[in-house]
Amino acid sequence: PEDEKKAKEALKRANGDEDKAKEILRKLGVDPDRAEELLRRLR
């Protein structure tokens, strides 16, 4: 869904750096736990 698209985009923008991607997602208003879960799934 929408969050998943955001997560993929964030990872791309962060050049695969998960911590940076998490930060980006947090700024986009995605719940930190949700962000973590999404990134884990994309790994």
Rank of each mutant, 00 (worst) to 15 (best):
L38F: 04
K12L: 14
R13V: 12
D3A: 08
L42A: 05
A35C: 04
E36L: 07
A35K: 00
L25Q: 00
L28G: 06
L28N: 06
R26Y: 13
A21C: 02
P32R: 09
P32V: 08
G29S: 03
I24A: 06
V30T: 03
P32G: 12
L38V: 05
E37G: 05
G29I: 03
A35E: 01
L38M: 08
A21E: 01
K20V: 14
K5S: 10
P1I: 13
D19Y: 11
E2G: 11
R41Q: 14
K27H: 12
G29P: 00
R26F: 13
P32S: 11
D31Y: 05
A10Q: 02
A7Q: 02
D3L: 14
L25I: 02
L39F: 08
K27S: 14
R13D: 10
P1N: 15
K22L: 14
I24Y: 10
A21T: 03
G16M: 05
R34M: 11
E9M: 11
L42F: 09
D33G: 11
D31N: 10
N15Q: 10
I24M: 08
D3R: 03
D17Y: 03
L11A: 02
L28V: 05
R13T: 12
L39N: 00
L25M: 06
K27C: 07
L42E: 04
E36G: 06
E9I: 11
K6A: 14
A21Q: 02
L39T: 01
N15L: 09
L11H: 03
P32H: 08
G16Q: 04
R26P: 01
V30I: 14
K8D: 04
R40H: 11
D17T: 02
I24E: 08
G29N: 04
E36D: 13
D33I: 13
K8H: 09
K22Q: 05
L38P: 00
L28K: 04
D3Q: 06
D3K: 03
K22A: 09
A35R: 02
R43Y: 07
D19M: 13
K6Q: 14
L39V: 07
R43V: 10
L25C: 00
L25N: 00
G29W: 01
K20D: 06
A10W: 02
A21K: 01
R26D: 06
R13E: 15
I24C: 03
E37A: 10
V30F: 15
L11N: 02
R26I: 15
E18R: 11
L42T: 03
K6P: 03
L25T: 00
R41N: 13
V30R: 01
K20E: 10
P32N: 11
N15I: 03
A10N: 01
R34N: 06
E4N: 06
K6D: 07
A35H: 04
K22H: 06
G29A: 03
G29D: 03
R40Y: 07
P1K: 13
R34G: 03
P1V: 13
K22W: 07
P32L: 10
E2W: 12
L42R: 02
E4F: 15
L28A: 10
L39P: 00
R26N: 09
D33Y: 10
R41Y: 11
D3V: 07
K22I: 11
P32F: 08
I24P: 00
V30N: 01
V30W: 15
D33K: 13
R43G: 07
I24H: 04
P32C: 04
K27D: 13
E36W: 05
R41F: 10
K20Y: 09
D19I: 13
V30Y: 15
D19H: 12
D31L: 10
K27F: 11
R43P: 04
R43D: 05
L42C: 05
D31F: 05
P32D: 10
D19G: 11
D19A: 15
E18W: 15
L42V: 07
L42P: 02
A10V: 04
A21I: 03
E9N: 07
L11I: 07
K27Y: 10
D33T: 11
E2R: 07
L39A: 01
I24N: 03
P1G: 14
G16C: 06
D3M: 11
E37M: 07
K12C: 07
K27W: 11
V30Q: 02
D17C: 04
D19E: 14
E2T: 12
E37V: 07
E9G: 05
K5R: 14
A35D: 01
K27Q: 15
R41V: 09
L25A: 01
A21N: 00
E9Q: 10
D17I: 04
D33Q: 13
K22Y: 12
K22N: 05
R13S: 12
G29M: 03
A10L: 02
A7R: 01
R40D: 09
E18A: 10
R26A: 13
D17L: 04
G29L: 04
L39H: 00
K5C: 03
E9R: 07
D31R: 08
G16N: 06
R43N: 08
I24W: 07
L28D: 08
E2P: 08
K20W: 09
K5Y: 12
D19V: 14
R40K: 12
N15Y: 08
I24K: 02
K20S: 06
E37Y: 07
K20M: 13
G16E: 02
E23R: 07
E36N: 07
R34S: 08
L11R: 02
R41T: 09
K20P: 00
L42D: 02
E23F: 04
L42H: 04
L11E: 01
L38H: 02
R43L: 14
E18V: 14
K22R: 13
E2Y: 08
D17P: 00
E4D: 08
N15P: 02
K22E: 03
E18M: 15
A14R: 00
R40F: 08
L11W: 11
R13W: 14
R34L: 13
L28Q: 13
P1M: 13
A10H: 01
A21S: 02
A35Y: 05
P1W: 15
E36C: 05
L42I: 12
A14I: 02
E23V: 07
E36A: 11
